[in-house]
Amino acid sequence: MMMVVLACVLWALGWWLNVRLANGPGSEQMAVKLAIPLIFGITILIVWELLVRGFGVNPVILPAPSSVISRMSGEGAILWADFRQTILKGALSGYVIGAGAALVVAVIADRSDFLTRGILPVGSFMAALPIVGTAPIFVKWLGSDWESKAAVVAVMVFFPILVNTVAGLKDTTVMQRDLMRTYGAGYWPTLLKLRLPAAMPFIFNGLKIGTTLALIGAIVAEFFGSPTVGMGFRISTSFGQLALDMVWAEIVVAALAGSALYGLMTLAEKRVTFWHPSQR
């Protein structure tokens, strides 16, 4: 009971602190802006820990954060092997293949107005479909190692990136293109110096959508067949052994990987599209 009361008190304390910080004089400072969500997150973690202990929640249903953390530090080697198999081999290679194919197809489609008008609706339609359902089919075709995961990921990220790139390549004004023509620039210089840079905000939008899809595709595809390593494999087998702290450890790794990939894309976007109003 003490733990539960303590949890309530801590929750109130954290909230009060955030109210003070958010409405206080320094609320526009960078440090405070960072501190508020951090306090919120840490408060939730502590309250979670206290409630799990206080109510004696069965670890099969919800493990305490402390046991997840100890699992993560204890099983570092396994987590790293899973990370390499699923993220580095499956998700990243699929992501690169899918994104590369989407960019190439978009540039080709962009040469003809007819193709653009055909591909845009079909592509945005495909992007809304449950493509992850093709995972069992790909596993059957390409075997259970990372190639099938890469294929699922490639198909999943292909359509959002394609649609965004095609839309982005159309985002130059007649005036800008006329200017390039007065410089005597042909198709390729115009593409490389004007239209691709102008499309970058759109392309990065697609790439950022793709990061989460890539991780989802790689992990879900492993549920249908995988070698004895990989995050999806570990999640489903640990689950079978009722080792929920291991499942949560994999979730934390997946979350970190997802955020890191997304952050990397945002960073690259900032460097590449420094000229765009949204970045200034």
Partner: peptide, 11 residues
């Protein structure tokens, strides 16, 4: 939104 939570749906 950057967390592949969908992968946990079966669990």
């Amino acid at each position: 939104q950057t967390i592949p939570i969908l992968a946990l749906a079966p669990m």
